[in-house]
């Protein structure tokens, strides 16, 4: 491929980790990699995205509080319509990334491939890998129509590596026409106080599931996470039940985590959960059902009552000081 665009998301500390992962992946499949970014100060990321291989950053500019989906997709669609089209567009599978991919897909009338965890080349074409059925099978797919194809990629599918490139050239792009679609505005942002590391960056993740029995028992999971300097996570079952917010969810429909140690407490291991944590380096599971699928991926499995094992574990760790 000649040219791939990567949607570059920015956090306070600069481009998000998944942005750098996608730039790295794009380098392996195209001679030219360029980024598309938005926000009040895109120039500040030109150095970092350049280091990871982008030679140019298309700057959509400040969105004045609008949700990014409509305006960023409109700007990209306008570039494509002007004849400046890449062969592929890589998008992170994040809240805003999926909005932009969906809008862009409808605007360009191009399909999307989502939940991608790997890329390969086949017959000179880019093929994509998708885990299905809890990651037991890998489906390889490709687009058959006209490009640019829109590829939505899961975080932590690639390891970000620097290319040693210089700062990317910042090119301002004209806003596209959003009409009524751009009317959703952020009125106020709320940052929830997080005392420990982020769920998808923590070296240790302790997750709880339905086996905890009641919402108040999730406190045990949080306490163990704190003692191990890790982050608390959750299965979809208890997020659906309203015990903990969606931001804690690990799995196919939540976050992908790859910590050094993952501790699953009272989680049976539905396929939807396994996809999000199977890549952990070491897995410990506590579950009362010996047949629970979680044990098939565990390095250490304790068949027992989570209400006995967890308090004892917390007690022992506390006594070590």
């Amino acid at each position: 491929m000649d040219r791939i665009w990567v949607l570059a998301e920015t956090a306070e500390s600069g481009p998000t980790p998944v942005t750098l992962e996608l730039l790295t992946a794009a380098r392996a499949h195209a001679s030219t990699v360029e980024a598309v970014a938005w926000g009040p100060d895109t120039a500040s990321i030109a150095g970092t995205v350049g280091e990871y291989g982008a030679t140019k950053v298309y700057d959509v500019g400040d969105l004045a509080g609008a949700l990014p989906g409509a305006p960023v997709a409109a700007a990209i669609a306008a570039l494509v319509a002007s004849g400046d089209a890449p062969d592929a567009i890589f998008v992170p599978a994040s809240y805003d990334g999926r909005d932009i991919a969906g809008r862009l897909s409808a605007k360009l009338d191009r399909p999307v491939l989502t939940n991608i965890t790997g890329f390969a080349q086949g017959d000179g074409q880019l093929t994509t890998e998708h885990p299905v059925f809890g990651g037991t099978l890998v489906v390889t797919a490709r687009f058959t129509g006209d490009g640019p194809g829109i590829f939505v990629v899961r975080a932590k599918s690639f390891t970000a590596e620097r290319s040693g490139g210089g700062p990317a050239e910042v090119v301002a792009v004209a806003p596209g026409d959003v009409g009524a679609t751009g009317a959703a505005k952020i009125v106020e942002r709320h940052v929830e106080a997080a005392s420990g590391p982020k769920l998808d960056e923590a070296a240790v993740v302790v997750s709880g599931g339905r086996g905890l029995g009641a919402p108040e028992h999730y406190a045990l999971v949080e306490e163990l996470a704190r003692l191990l300097h890790g982050a608390p996570g959750a299965s979809r079952a208890i997020v659906d039940a309203g015990w903990v917010p969606y931001s804690h969810q690990v799995g196919q429909t939540g976050k992908t985590v790859k910590p050094t140690v993952y501790v699953a407490c009272g989680i049976s291991g539905a396929t939807q959960h396994l996809v999000g944590m199977k890549g952990s380096k070491h897995i410990v599971a506590i579950n009362k059902d010996q047949e629970a699928p979680i044990f098939s991926v565990s390095d250490l499995g304790i068949v027992g009552d989570v209400h006995k094992v967890l308090p004892a574990l917390i007690e022992q760790l506390k006594s070590r000081g």
């Binding site: 037991t136 797919a141 250490l300 094992v309």
Partner: peptide
Amino acid sequence: GARQEVVDVSEAEARGSGEIVVD
């Protein structure tokens, strides 16, 4: 209308289970 196709389905690399013990 999908304009995409599955070209292959294969078994993922299995993650072996380790030690499972009854508490």
